[in-house]
Write a protein that binds this DNA or RNA. Structure first.
Lengths: 335, 335
DNA sequence: CCTTTATCTGTTAACGTTTTCATAATAAGC
DNA sequence: GCTTATTATGAAAACGTTAACAGATAAAGG
């Protein structure tokens, strides 16, 4: 494997000169620079990052952490953030992708291994990890969840507003009794969405059919099971708020099987605006979570945190958007 | 930041002893080992990987490469492989995730940066990269695509058999004219699935409606557009083979919009058995690609390639499974 | 042509580990 | 208690790079 010294020997210069030349140090004469460069490319030389990292006290690695890789992380988030990070980072940086839930030892995972950390957080369980990273003084940004603390760069998403807005819409269309299929318990989004759901219904003094508020796990089959349960009730609500689109898709399946028409017999609202929301039948009315925007803002912040020592840590909140499609019936319509 | 020398000073021993103690070298007395260990954990010590890597000539990083992060890589593959790799690897290893399509320089991305490489390949375009890795002598395994070469550990998926099997099933149910929505041109799966489709139909001397063979891009909206195009033909086939489930979902949407019933008026077959295939209406008949099995076999191989110098490189082929659901009509039925 | 300054290059140490080799301390054998 | 064998520890070098400092060469000024 070619090192800086191999090149030095061939070029008849010292390895220091080679180092300088390859790093574009203007002190080295242009002619020798070219000669060295030529030899380097011929040998397919590429610097040893361990050595470089040792002296520069850098690792050339950014850690990207999700609450969990297996469960609950939307694909789009994964790919969106990975792509953006790669584009934003210098080519010499690597991206290490991890799930916080299968980290055995924070020391090993973080300390003297990473130059910066991006966390896409779904759960309060991540707080311990976030705190650890912060304490170790690494550049850090947390995406998705709104943190309580303000000493961390943070881009959150407004789950509450999204849910509330969607429920207001349902109320406006004349719905009076509601049910909900809830998300994974440990996810903060689940409790926030539930709270917004409850708050809005109560505010309007409308009814929640408590038997029609059932747990789910953010995947289609849990939505399916939950909806079956709801549809077997002696009487069911006019609208079910599903805490995400995948569960809404499962719920829809249950409706089809039991010959309950959507939206004629029951209305459905989802959350996320997944790619499939528009393609199911009926197209799903849902709350769009602009992952692209979240990622963009977050990685802009990360850039600041990494490169601008003057940067004042900030917290931003990204707003949802109600996407009206065909899964909610207008009960006020006079037909 | 605590180093081995910090610990040495506190413990009143040489840094060499600390190194040995922490690495479980039996030469060091148990009592001193414990003393050192205690100090280390108190300081939250964690070894500097650059330094260790420099002397051991290791990087403690495994590269995971997809043809592209943004497009065409199924989520399940991403999460499945990441999860499995993490579980299989020693805790000290990191996982660097990349898209081959946005690699600017193979040297920088690979050389003296990685201890091993896992490629999930969709396209022949990856061959150059695969070749580069192989030439540099890194432990390598390629998943998903069946390679021509046999000097690389390889687990491929049998797209041909899957498609053929599904088409045979359609023929058995009495279908006589066929159309297809194709995948991304540069993906090898696209051409293989097309070939199998053509081969099977021709073998049975049945008809392909050439206007009903339209290009797609493996996403739902391309399936939607393609199906619209097909349904506008003066006459359409009895069955459309969609090169993946997402496009089938889009196609289904088009059918709904144009009041073409599935499977009564037209039959649909997908590919992949995505999570959603079972949840759309009608549930999609499709070909299951067992990503779990592919990953498992592949990472078993990777383990061998990494750790067993005796290992004989091998090529394995994973078989598909036809999943019969409700989107194909039985034309032989006498009702 | 000699001195001064500017430009370029080399020597050396350092980063935090592991490893080889030597040596000090202890235990065993008589 | 003295030699030998065993066990535990330390000193020094090495990995490939960068950086501080010094030194050499070339250009400029008189």
């Amino acid at each position: 494997m070619a090192t800086i010294k191999t090149i030095a020997k061939i070029a008849g210069v010292s390895h220091t000169t080679v180092s300088r030349a390859l790093n574009g140090n203007p002190a080295v004469k242009e002619k020798t620079r070219q000669k060295i460069q030529k030899i380097a490319t011929e040998l397919g030389y590429s610097p040893n990052l361990s050595a470089r990292g040792l002296v520069n006290n850098k690792t050339y690695t950014i850690g990207l952490f999700f609450s969990s890789i297996q469960t609950g992380t939307s694909t789009s988030f994964l790919t969106e953030v990975i792509t953006r990070l790669h584009n934003a980072l210098d080519k010499e940086y690597m991206l290490s992708v991890n799930g916080i839930d299968d980290l055995s030892n924070y020391n090993i995972a973080v300390k003297s291994r990473l130059d910066g950390v991006v966390v896409v957080s779904q759960s309060q369980n991540d707080d311990e990890f976030i705190d650890f990273v912060k304490k170790n003084g690494l550049p850090l940004v947390v995406l998705n969840r709104l943190l309580q603390r303000h000493d961390v760069a943070n881009v959150g998403f407004d789950d509450y507003a999204g849910t509330y807005q969607a429920m207001e819409y349902a109320v406006r269309l004349g719905h009076k009794t509601f049910g909900m299929i809830e998300g994974i318990d440990s996810f903060e989004s689940s409790s926030i969405r539930r709270k917004a759901f409850l708050d809005c219904v109560n505010k309007h003094h409308l009814n929640i059919l408590s038997d029609a508020v059932v747990p789910g796990t953010y995947d289609a089959s849990s939505g399916y099971r939950a909806m079956k349960q709801i549809l077997l009730l002696p009487e069911f609500p006019t609208l079910i708020f599903c805490a995400n689109d995948d569960m809404a898709i499962g719920a829809l399946k249950a409706c089809h099987e039991l010959n309950v028409r959507v939206p004629e017999d029951i209305s459905l609202i989802g959350f996320d605006d997944s790619v499939y929301a528009a393609f199911i039948n009926p197209a799903l009315t849902t709350i769009r979570k602009p992952i692209d925007k979240l990622s963009e803002l977050g990685l802009q912040m990360f850039d600041q945190v990494m490169n601008n020592p003057e940067y004042q840590l900030e917290t931003k909140l990204v707003s949802p958007e109600l996407i009206i499609r065909d899964s909610v019936k207008n009960l006020n319509a006079t037909d």
